[in-house]
Structures are given as structure tokens and as C-alpha cells.
Amino acid sequence: MGLFDLFRQDRKKNTAKAAKERLQILIAHEHAMGAGGHKGPDYLPKLREEIIAVIRKYVSVSDNDVNFQVEKGDDFDMLELNITLPDSK
């Protein structure tokens, strides 16, 4: 960074960090959905559907509020389930 950069109005923020976060979320989602050639377990879409149905018995959530990820470990695969609950008032 040069001296004159200090006086520039629009010092940019770190967009690379945003890029990395967006990619990590997107790619985990695409893997879980079996996009491209990535195959999650065959039962996954059905499992996701049924879990959402169960949650909806109790709270109202949209499809986007439920985030499924399968992470491949060396010894085991992990299913991560993130549910964003609506604000309770």
C-alpha cells in the first residue's frame, strides 16, 4: 500500500473473505444435494424432506431455514443439520 492510498476515500474491504465463506456454504450445499457428480448418500433427499416435515409440526420454517451438510472425514462422515428457527415473540 502506498502513502497516497491512505487518503483514498473508498478503502476496500476484504472481499476475498466473503468469497471464501460463500463458496464454503455453496459447495457444502451442492455436495449434500448431489449436484454435479457429487453423490451424497441416496437416502439424503428423502431424509431431508422428512426431517423438515417433522420440524414443521412444531414450528414454521421455510426450506431455506434448514441447512443440510455431509462432511467427509477420514474415518467417518458427519451429517450436519442447521435449523434457523423463526423469532419467537
Binding site: L23, L26, I27, E30, A35, G36, G37, H38, K39
Partner: peptide
Amino acid sequence: RDSDRILGILQS
């Protein structure tokens, strides 16, 4: 992202 998809195709 596209590289990741190609990797998926290579693997399957």
C-alpha cells in the same frame, strides 16, 4: 465452484 463440480464428475 466449477472445479468442484468437475471433481465430482471425476469421482463418480
